[in-house]
């Protein structure tokens, strides 16, 4: 291959990457600024909180209960080899509160809510509803993006808190009814292993994931182009990029939160 072609291709890809990062950064700053400055739209904030929080409960609850159940089952298989079955409550409570609660809830909500946001805002973009907002003297960042960001950041921690409880319950059910643990001992062990810092770290992660989901849902919808196909592409991109960013930021947040 001609070395110049190679260079120009590499440069092109790099430039595209920089442009995309720059655009997302600008969007993020605008979104943050407008989310915290008036006018606020309480009606829309509540509406988004219900759509993110309440309507995600079934999917998040189901994910949590089966995760807790499988955790108990898997760790039993592993630990019984060392006769360390008593560590099961520990494994369940630690993994759920620190990791699996926030990450799995984040991924499920990204699929459900991030996609819906991108589709809704994308449709508004291609049908000129966003332009119409502007001509009616309303800032789309304040009206569309702000409420979604606020709802994402506040509702994800609440969802994760519920997921934590349901996940731990799932582990309890399998341990007691299938593996024959003593219910009282199991509960006491769970309580002893439970750490408020673990819970808090999970909730902080959840808030960050909620921000990522809403931000990318809005960003991809807002910048969608070209009819139904463009909206479809925006939806896919919103879910994929949010999921990847959740997993990446999870690692760095873990490093940050447990570095002491």
């Amino acid at each position: 291959m001609n070395p110049l072609t190679f260079l120009s291709t590499t440069g092109g890809v790099f430039m595209t990457f920089l442009t995309a990062t720059g655009r997302l950064s600008l969007f993020t700053f605008s979104a943050l600024y407008h989310a915290v400055t008036p006018p606020f739209y309480p009606r829309l904030i509540v509406q988004q909180m219900i759509s993110i929080g309440y309507f995600s409960l079934p999917v998040v609850g189901l994910t949590a209960i089966f995760t807790g159940m499988v955790l108990a089952l898997q760790s039993y298989t592993g630990f019984s080899r060392f006769s360390a079955e008593s560590a099961i409550p520990n494994v369940v409570v630690l993994s759920i509160t620190r990791e699996l609660g926030p990450v799995l809830a984040g991924l499920m909500v990204a699929g459900r809510v991030g996609a819906a946001m991108a589709a809704e805002i994308g449709t508004m973009r291609v049908t000129e509803q966003i332009d119409a907002l502007v001509t009616l003297s309303t800032n789309p960042f304040k009206y569309l993006v702000g409420p979604r960001l606020i709802a994402g950041v506040t509702m994800l921690p609440i969802l994760v808190l519920i997921a934590d409880v349901i996940g731990i319950l799932g582990g309890y059910l399998v341990s007691v009814y299938k593996l024959g643990f003593n219910p009282t001992t199991y509960l006491i062990n769970t309580w002893n292993f439970f750490e408020v810092e673990d819970l808090n770290s999970g909730l902080i992660k959840a808030a960050v994931f909620g921000f990522i989901i809403s931000l990318l849902g809005c960003y991809n919808g807002y910048n969608s182009r070209g009819g139904a196909q463009g909206v479809g592409a925006a939806t896919t991109t919103a879910v994929v990029t949010a999921s990847i960013l959740i997993l990446c930021s999870d690692y760095f947040l873990t490093e940050l939160l447990f570095s002491q």
């Binding site: 809704e120 449709t123 508004m124 049908t127 000129e128 509803q129 332009d131 119409a132």
Partner: peptide, 13 residues
């Protein structure tokens, strides 16, 4: 300003 958009651009929500 007032603007009538080509497709109406009514807010469907």
């Amino acid at each position: 300003f007032g603007m009538l958009f080509q497709g109406g651009a009514l807010f469907d929500s």
